[in-house]
Amino acid sequence: MLYWLMKHVFIGPILKLFFRPRIIEGAENLPESGGVILASNHLAVSDSFFLPLKLSRRVTFPAKIEYFTGKGVKGAIKRWFFSGVGQVPIDRSSASAAQAALDTGVRIVREGKVLGIYPEGTRSPDGRLYKGKVGVAWIALESGAPVIPVAMFGTDKANPIGSKMWRPYPIRIKIGKPLDFSRYAGLSGDRFVLRSITDEIMYALMELSGQEYVDVYAAKAKETADETSAADRLPDKKAG
């Protein structure tokens, strides 16, 4: 009920008014029932809001647990909001927590629901498409569900990194054809198979989105950029 209210009464109408999100092709690639995995590129936090808005089926996104553990009124509002838009808390602070997150993804898909996931693991720091993490492949093999690539366009313009306010900008969405990995059934423990599947998913996303591909994890690229920025701020000892 809360999800329906957020989509059709509270958040949905506002997003439609200012951003005019639309699926430009491929809506027929999402089956009307059954568990599926939507694997999307990740340009902005707002990706998780705009994609469900244009789909007839409910989409469940794993979200970092910090969104659900805040204290006071602000924390309560965040919990209400993120729960309302279909996100579930995921703790990724340890290896066991990461496995629990994957298990949650499998459970969601086996229940016949739509799981939204970002194979890059975090937002792209510069609009390019980064190396995918193999969790999406593991969920696909354990659940037996197809993976449907999704490309978001314009969300990084509407919701730039570091911005506190969203800006009106037309959002576009492309949904690709389902990818079937049943030929790898029973091989979820093979890391080479998981990498092969993940790379196939990322290639499909690259073709769908038109983004330049970078064979580096986005988190590593952000870390390197932060280190470079910090080094640039250091005083030049030769100066003076």
Rank of each mutant, 00 (worst) to 15 (best):
1 M>K: 15
3 Y>E: 04
4 W>E: 10
5 L>E: 05
7 K>P: 08
13 P>Y: 06
14 I>N: 03
15 L>M: 13
18 F>I: 00
19 F>D: 13
19 F>H: 15
20 R>I: 10
21 P>H: 10
24 I>D: 14
26 G>I: 02
27 A>S: 15
28 E>P: 02
29 N>T: 07
29 N>Y: 04
30 L>S: 05
31 P>M: 01
33 S>G: 07
34 G>C: 00
34 G>V: 06
36 V>Y: 12
43 L>A: 04
45 V>D: 13
47 D>E: 03
48 S>W: 08
48 S>C: 14
49 F>H: 12
50 F>D: 10
50 F>E: 10
53 L>I: 02
55 L>M: 09
60 T>Q: 15
61 F>Q: 05
61 F>Y: 12
63 A>D: 12
64 K>P: 12
65 I>A: 10
73 V>M: 14
73 V>N: 13
74 K>A: 13
75 G>Q: 07
77 I>Q: 13
77 I>D: 11
77 I>W: 13
80 W>A: 03
80 W>L: 09
84 G>F: 08
85 V>H: 01
86 G>F: 05
87 Q>V: 04
87 Q>A: 01
88 V>Y: 00
88 V>C: 01
88 V>G: 03
89 P>K: 02
89 P>V: 08
89 P>G: 04
90 I>V: 05
90 I>L: 00
94 S>Y: 09
99 Q>H: 12
99 Q>C: 03
101 A>N: 03
102 L>H: 03
103 D>M: 10
106 V>N: 01
107 R>Q: 09
107 R>W: 03
108 I>Y: 05
109 V>F: 00
110 R>P: 04
113 K>Y: 09
116 G>V: 02
116 G>C: 09
123 R>Q: 02
123 R>S: 02
126 D>H: 06
128 R>M: 15
129 L>R: 07
130 Y>W: 13
130 Y>L: 09
134 V>I: 13
135 G>K: 10
138 W>G: 12
138 W>T: 12
139 I>K: 11
141 L>D: 15
146 P>M: 07
149 P>S: 06
152 M>D: 03
153 F>T: 02
154 G>M: 07
155 T>V: 02
157 K>H: 11
165 M>P: 00
169 Y>M: 05
171 I>K: 01
171 I>C: 06
173 I>D: 01
173 I>H: 07
175 I>C: 05
180 D>W: 05
180 D>V: 12
181 F>E: 07
185 A>H: 13
187 L>G: 07
193 V>A: 03
193 V>D: 01
193 V>N: 01
197 I>T: 00
199 D>M: 01
201 I>A: 08
205 L>K: 00
206 M>G: 12
208 L>H: 11
209 S>D: 00
212 E>R: 14
212 E>C: 10
216 V>A: 14
217 Y>F: 15
218 A>C: 06
222 K>Y: 14
223 E>G: 08
223 E>M: 13
224 T>W: 12
226 D>W: 05
227 E>N: 14
229 S>V: 13
229 S>I: 11
232 D>M: 14
232 D>A: 15
232 D>C: 10
235 P>W: 05
238 K>Y: 15
240 G>I: 14
240 G>Q: 14
240 G>F: 15
